[in-house]
Write a protein that binds this DNA or RNA. Structure first.
Length: 612
DNA sequence: GTGCAAGAG
DNA sequence: GGTTCTCTTGCAC
C-alpha cells in the first residue's frame, strides 16, 4: 500500500493528502532537561525546588518548583517572589547540557537500524523505527502475544527484551482504548513501538538517570504532540487507526500555536484573518492566541489556497498554505533526518542588556572572550578524539552578528520589533584551525587575539561603518554573536584509529588520500612562502602551527604511516622527519593529521584549499 | 555565496 | 532592572 504522489498528475484539491501511516516514529523529550542535569550532578537537589537561570530569566525549573508556582521563562525576581526558597543555578554555559545530550543521543542512536535519529534542541530526539518495527511484526506470534520477545538486533536473536504484546506500554490516546487488535497491522506496529519506546526510556533512566516523556505515532508532528499528552515520566501512543477520526479530533483540540511548524508569526497572520471583521475585534499577540485547529479548519472559506494567500509575503516559504493545511489535518510527511556527526554551524553569543557596549574597546574585549569560547567549541565538536586530534570537519565562514539595544522604553509584547539583528561574514582564516598536539587549550588565547584583530574587528567595522559619536553611550550594542558555518567534511569518525586495516574501511579519509596522490606533482613544486609567520601585532609571539609536545603521542599503535598515502606523498623526503618525532622542522597538519615539513606547509595548505 | 526571517527548544 | 543561547531551514538577492 504505497501512495506515491506524482505531483504533476494530481489536480489541486481542497482535501489534504491522505495520511500515510507507513512509518513509525518515536519522540523523546527529556523532562526539564537543564534542571535534571544539575540534579544528577548533585542528587540532593532532587527534593528541592530548582530553577535554572540565564541572565534574568528562568530557562527551566524542575517539577518541585512547578508545583510551587514557578514557571518556565519567568523573570528571576518573579520566581523568587512566588517561591522564596527556590534554588537558582546558572545555566548560561551550555557545555554540561551539550555533553549529557550527546551521551543520551548516542544511546538512542545505537538502537537505530537506519541512522534516522534527529536531535531537536538539546532535549528532544526523533527516531524513525519503521524497519525495527516491521522486523518485529514479522517475528511476532499473534497467538502468544502475552509472552513476546522484542528483537533489537537482526543478527543476534538473544539481544532484546521480553514484553506483553497484548497491551500497549504506557498511555494511549484516546485513553482507555488499550486493547491491541491483532488483526489490525497498524495497531500491532504501534503496540510494538510503544514497547520499544518504553524500553529506551527506561534505559536512559537506568543508565544515566534521565527520565523522559515519549510519543509514539506515524509522523514527527503526531509523535511529538502525542508525547506531550502525558508528562513527565510517561509516554503516549496515538492510536491513529485507519478508519477512525482519532487523529482529527486530536488535532482539533489543540491551539494552533501549539502545533510544531506554526510559530508566532503564522499564528498571528491566521488569527488576524479569522478574527478579522465581524465578531471579535480582539486581536491578541500571536503567542497566546486561543485559536484552535478546529476553528481555523472550519472557518468559512478556509482552504490551502486561502492559507497561502494569508501567509505569503515576500520572504515567506512557498507552499506554506498546503503545508499548514496538511498539518491542521494531522498530515506531516517530513522525514526524520539522518544523524550527522558534526553540526552545520557553531555560534556563541552574549547579551549586554544591563550595560550595553559603548566603545570599540569594550567590543574588542567581548569579541576576544567570545572568540576563545568559539575556538574551544570548534575543537570539542569538530575534531576526533585521537591523539593528536584531527578535524572531522572545518568551517569555511566566520560570521559576526550584532544588534543594537531594542529601545529605552517600550512595553513588552506590544511593539513586535524585538531586535534588528544584522550580520556580516567572511572567510575563516586558516590560522584558526591550528591544533596543538597536546594540552588542548594553550594556544587559544593567541589565536583568539589574532582572529579579533584580523577578522572580527574588520567585520565589525563593516557592520558599524561610522562609529557613532557618543551622545551618551556610543554604540549601544545589546548583543554580539559570532558563528562559524559552511562546514567542509574532511575525515569520517573512526578514521584515525583504523580499526580494521583491510577491505571496506576508508570513507572520506581515503578519498583525501587519493587526492593526495593525484596532487603529488603539484605538491612537489612547492615554493617557500611565509608559512604563516607569527604576526607581530600586540606583542603576541604566536606560532600558529602545532608545536611539539613532550607527550608520547606517537606510541599510539596502529597509526603506521608506512602504508598510508602520506608515505607516497612524502616519498623521497621522508627522512626530513622521523616517525616518532615531529620536531622543529615539521608540524602536524591540523586538517588531515599528516606530518608536514614547514617548507611544504604552503603547498599543503593550497592542497587543502583546493578541496571542494 | 550573503544576509535575514522564522521556526525549534 | 526589560527576550537566553543556540541551531536549522528557506527566501531574496
Amino acid at each position: 500500500m504505497k501512495t506515491t504522489t506524482l505531483t504533476s498528475a494530481i489536480p489541486r484539491v481542497t482535501k489534504p493528502p491522505k495520511r500515510n501511516d507507513d512509518r513509525v516514529i518515536l519522540h523523546f523529550d527529556y523532562d526539564c532537561f537543564y534542571a535534571s542535569v544539575f540534579e544528577n550532578e548533585n542528587p540532593a537537589l532532587k527534593s528541592l525546588p530548582v530553577g535554572v537561570k540565564q541572565k534574568s530569566i528562568l530557562a527551566t525549573c524542575n517539577y518541585v518548583a512547578r508545583a510551587r508556582g514557578v514557571k518556565k521563562l519567568m523573570l528571576i525576581s518573579e520566581a523568587q517572589r512566588v517561591c522564596p526558597d527556590l534554588v537558582i543555578l546558572n545555566g548560561e554555559d551550555l557545555t554540561r547540557f551539550r555533553d549529557v545530550s550527546k551521551r543520551l543521543w548516542s544511546t538512542l542512536r545505537a538502537h537505530s537500524w537506519n541512522r534516522r535519529v534527529e536531535r531537536l534542541g538539546l532535549d528532544e530526539v526523533f527516531l524513525d523505527v519503521t524497519d525495527v518495527i516491521a522486523y518485529n511484526a514479522e517475528m511476532l506470534n499473534v497467538h502468544a502475544l502475552g509472552s513476546s520477545f522484542f528483537h533489537l538486533d537482526r543478527r543476534d536473536p538473544e539481544k532484546g527484551f521480553a514484553f506483553d504484546g497484548a497491551q500497549f506500554f504506557g498511555c494511549v490516546y484516546p485513553a482507555g482504548s488499550a486493547a491491541v487488535l491483532p488483526e489490525d497491522p497498524l495497531s500491532v506496529r504501534l503496540m510494538l513501538a510503544s514497547h520499544l519506546a518504553g524500553y529506551l526510556r527506561h534505559k536512559l533512566e537506568d543508565d544515566f538517570g534521565y527520565t523522559s516523556s515519549g510519543g509514539v505515532s506515524t509522523s514527527k508532528v503526531l509523535a511529538k504532540l502525542a508525547g506531550s499528552v502525558n508528562k513527565p515520566k510517561n509516554q503516549t501512543t496515538l492510536l491513529s487507526l485507519q478508519d477512525s477520526d482519532v487523529v482529527q479530533e486530536f488535532m482539533d483540540a489543540h491551539q494552533i500555536r501549539q502545533i510544531p511548524g506554526i510559530g508566532s508569526r503564522i499564528t498571528q497572520l491566521i488569527q488576524e484573518h479569522v478574527l478579522s471583521a465581524p465578531t471579535t475585534p480582539q486581536i491578541q499577540p500571536g503567542d497566546e492566541s486561543p485559536l484552535t485547529v478546529a476553528q481555523v479548519r472550519q472557518h468559512p472559506g478556509m482552504s490551502p489556497e486561502l492559507l497561502e494567500r494569508i501567509l505569503s509575503r515576500p520572504g515567506s516559504e512557498r507552499g506554506s498554505g498546503d503545508k499548514i493545511w496538511a498539518i491542521l489535518h494531522g498530515v506531516d510527511r517530513s522525514e526524520v533526518k539522518e544523524a550527522s556527526d558534526v553540526p552545520t554551524q557553531i555560534s556563541i553569543e552574549d547579551t549586554y542588556m544591563a550595560r550595553p557596549l559603548g566603545t570599540v574597546a569594550e567590543v574588542s574585549r567581548e569579541l576576544h572572550t567570545l572568540a576563545a569560547s568559539l575556538l574551544r567549541r570548534m575543537r570539542v565538536d569538530l575534531t576526533d578524539a585521537g591523539k593528536p586530534p584531527r578535524w572531522l570537519a572545518y568551517p569555511k565562514t566566520l560570521r559576526l552578528s550584532t544588534c543594537t539595544r531594542p529601545r529605552p522604553s517600550s512595553k513588552p509584547g506590544t511593539e513586535h520589533h524585538p531586535f534588528g539583528r544584522s550580520s556580516r561574514s567572511a572567510a575563516l582564516p586558516r590560522f584558526a584551525l591550528a591544533l596543538p598536539d597536546s594540552p588542548i587549550n594553550d594556544d587559544i588565547e593567541a589565536i583568539a587575539a589574532r582572529l579579533v584583530a584580523e577578522s572580527l574587528l574588520p567585520l565589525f567595522r563593516r557592520l558599524h561603518p561610522e562609529t557613532p559619536r557618543p551622545p551618551q553611550g556610543g554604540l549601544n550594542l545589546g548583543l554580539i554573536n559570532i558563528c562559524v558555518t559552511n562546514m567542509v567534511m574532511v575525515a569520517s569518525a573512526g578514521d584515525g584509529e583504523n580499526e580494521e586495516g583491510g577491505g571496506g574501511g576508508g570513507g572520506n579519509g581515503r578519498d583525501i588520500g587519493r587526492m593526495f596522490r593525484t596532487q603529488e606533482d603539484k605538491l612537489r613544486e612547492f615554493t617557500v612562502y611565509d608559512t604563516s609567520g607569527p604576526s607581530a601585532e600586540d606583542g603576541h609571539k604566536n606560532d600558529t602551527v602545532a608545536k611539539d609536545a613532550s607527550e608520547d603521542r606517537r606510541r599510539s599503535s596502529g597509526y603506521n604511516d608506512d602504508t598510508k598515502p602520506a608515505a607516497v606523498l612524502l616519498d623521497g623526503e621522508d627522512d626530513t622527519w622521523d616517525d616518532d618525532e615531529t620536531d622543529e622542522d615539521s608540524f602536524r597538519c591540523p586538517l588531515c593529521g599528516h606530518p608536514i615539513p614547514y617548507f611544504a606547509a604552503s603547498a599543503h595548505e593550497r592542497f587543502h584549499s583546493m578541496e571542494d
